[in-house]
Amino acid sequence: MSRIKQTLDALKKERKKALITYLTAGHPDIEATEALVIEMVKKGADIVEIGIPYSDPVADGPVIQKAAQKALDNHIKIKDIMYMVERLRQKTNTPLLYLVYFNCIFQYGMEKFINHCKRVGIDGLIIPDLPYEESQEIRRISAKYDVDIISLVSPTSEERIKRIISDSTGFIYCVSSTGVTGMRKKFEADFETFMQNVNEYGDIPKIIGFGISSPEQVKEIKDYADGVIVGSAIVKMIDEHYLASDRLEKVGAFVTSLKEAVK
């Protein structure tokens, strides 16, 4: 059984919601990312999503765009990130995901990338620009290696939801509203209908992401699903403490407050 499934099943049994936290690899540098992942796990992150910085992140808002640009300006390469994950796996058994744009995988070679993920200990991939129709080949390969390809569904998916969910492993990433990653003040009117629709299908865990930026929002939204993903708010905090010595402490305290809120 995959680490993702194990973790989410255990939470469900205890009637707890999952907290997934995101950060961009190499922002501010690879050692800082490594330390931040460990800190987030220590403060209660159930799964950590590691963003591979990309030159053209069309699914991301300004906060994550800027983080990716800074990481690339620091010449972060995919192989550096793979080595970092290998080191992380010596220290933690928490499920780790990559958020990665398809071209990075495609250039690396699909099978080589998945194989490498498996070897270093990545449990799943979120590929924001690879919709269901284009994902057949990578799903076939990743099944061989037992790496989950996490499917996204969005409020505009409508009748597509059923088919996408029936073919998914790991969990379903429910995009809270149309648009790109980034903080939102409120969620759209159709959010409730969308989540009702999603929850009708399968018992695979449903996790909500995009725009969730505070413990208050986590509280407001968590009961619609099996967990929440917080990204831009964490990346923004890292950016605001880019070279500060209390960066780890600040991010740790924020994750603690999010963990309190999912309880």
């Binding site: 924001p128 919709p131 269901y132 129709e133 969005s154 505009t156 998916s157 995009v175």
Partner: peptide, 10 residues
């Protein structure tokens, strides 16, 4: 092909 986010597929 169609390499876009799920939000744009429909």
């Amino acid at each position: 092909g169609q390499y876009v986010s799920e939000t744009l597929m429909n």
